[in-house]
């Protein structure tokens, strides 16, 4: 028998942990269609109450940056320390910052 996990396309899975938080990448599943991908994502990644919402999208649809361009893309930010809001005092008791 052929191996379905090699024939089925890959889907990226994103989970919203709880209301108010954004979806975060959790991993990927193999599935033949979008509905199966959602069911596989639910069965694979939310068994321990990890989430309240799921996104799946075909991995092939992701456009990623070229690692060869990393120097031009990311290194110019290295000496722009003033872009970090680290010069403010954060009051005690503020969370999620």
């Amino acid at each position: 028998m052929s191996d379905p996990s090699k024939e089925w396309p890959l889907w990226e899975v994103f989970i919203r942990g709880k209301g108010g938080l954004s979806h975060r990448h959790a991993g990927s599943v193999h599935a033949a269609d979008a509905k199966m991908a959602l069911e596989h994502a639910r069965d694979t990644y939310t068994r321990r109450m990890e989430g309240v919402s799921l996104w799946v999208l075909p991995s092939a649809q992701i456009v990623s940056s070229d690692p060869g361009d990393a120097a031009a893309l990311f290194e110019p930010a290295e000496d722009k320390v003033y872009r970090h809001p680290t010069f403010y005092k954060i009051p005690d008791g503020i969370t999620h910052i």
Binding site: M1, S5, V29, T44
Partner: peptide, 9 residues
């Protein structure tokens, strides 16, 4: 099961 994901299902 036929695939890991189906195994979990």
């Amino acid at each position: 099961a036929p695939a890991l994901e189906v195994d979990l299902s």
